[in-house]
């Protein structure tokens, strides 16, 4: 069975690249994009199972981004990653879950695994 594909969308490059490596060490196939404008193309190319989406990226409005992602990849599950601000009720409805930075890797992996189960229809 191929490893689950993850896409990290976050403008903090050092954070996103280190997290990508950490997830790859844990048998995921993770990739990262650092600019909102590259996110949709990466979704189309990589076909991720789960996306870790930074809630506050320059030039990105989270609600619109989630909608655009879901239009081109309706099955993908999105986990919102945020510094502080909790997602609005509307975003909570469209995203699978959210997690607050700095992330506990175990907690993140639990959420990713749950998102994968949901995508597979097992949840």
């Amino acid at each position: 069975m191929p490893p689950p594909k993850l896409l990290i969308i976050d403008d903090e490059e050092d954070y996103a690249s280190a997290l990508t490596e950490r997830l790859n060490l844990r048998n995921f196939e993770a990739a990262a994009v650092y600019e909102a404008k590259d996110a949709l193309a990466a979704v189309e190319i990589n076909h991720p199972d789960v996306i870790l989406l930074d809630l506050c990226m320059p030039g990105m409005e989270a609600k619109g981004m989630i909608k655009a992602i879901k239009t081109i990849a309706p099955q993908v599950e999105i986990i919102i990653v945020s510094g502080h601000a909790l997602p609005t009720a509307e975003i909570k409805q469209t995203a699978f879950d959210y997690i607050v930075k700095p992330i506990e890797i175990k907690e993140l992996i639990e959420k990713i695994n749950m998102a994968i189960l949901k995508k597979q229809g097992a949840l």
């Binding site: 050092d14 954070y15 280190a18 950490r22 510094g83 502080h84 930075k101």
Partner: peptide
């Protein structure tokens, strides 16, 4: 204050993942 703490969280997230990667 809230903008600063948001940035602070981002900095902490970078330190957290870098230290986490070292641990990994």
């Amino acid at each position: 204050i809230s903008l600063y703490t948001h940035e602070q969280k981002n900095h902490l997230a970078i330190i957290n993942e870098s230290a986490g990667l070292l641990g990994d």
